[in-house]
Amino acid sequence: MAFHTMDFGAPTCARISERALAIAFEAEPSPALQERIRSLARRALEHDAVAEAVAGLGNLTLFLRSPDDAEALLARLPAWASEAAAAEASAPRTIEIPVRYGGADGPDLPAVAQRCGLAEDEVVRLHAAGEYLVFFLGFQPGFAYLGGLDARLATPRLATPRTEVPAGSVGIGGAQTGVYPRRAPGGWNLIGRTELALFDPFGSPPSLLQAGDRVRFVPV
């Protein structure tokens, strides 16, 4: 992995709230940038005063145990960013997610195919051919924002969101794809569904997917 030798420029470091510090890069979001952020998160969490590190798109927020440490730690962030840039990238995990595409599991597959000017099986082929990277988690427990959707599959969100999307639904929303860990309202186009549990509050860690993981969808 050559990601860490890449130059993303000096990040902006700021105190956001009493116990939140943020590090943000100007560079275009990319898998390489998210790798850097993950490396920075690992570096920051080595420090006892840092309770949690939450990645965003091109940025990282550190939540501190005590607000009294904020100014001292803020001063250290540029050094941590340099160390993260020099650090050896860890080998990524690849998680395979088995998906039943189309039919009742993917009621929007025909609409996505039509919108993209592709046959339904071509949509499935392209979606399953991609190697995705978990950029970060949010929206609901275990929900992974995945980078790497084939641009030909980008489809606008539904004009009227569904009031209920079944757990395990695989969807496309704009240039993003993802899996709903839990039944929820949602506006993405549903193209398939997985039986895999993405979130288990009693698991360790609770989320199957972690920032930095590679993801592949496998048609079943």
């Binding site: 309770a51 949690e52 929206f139 609901q140 427990p141 609770p206």
Partner: peptide, 9 residues
């Protein structure tokens, strides 16, 4: 606290 990176509020 501690599971925000997994999307847990």
């Amino acid at each position: 606290f501690g599971a925000r990176a997994s999307g847990v509020g």
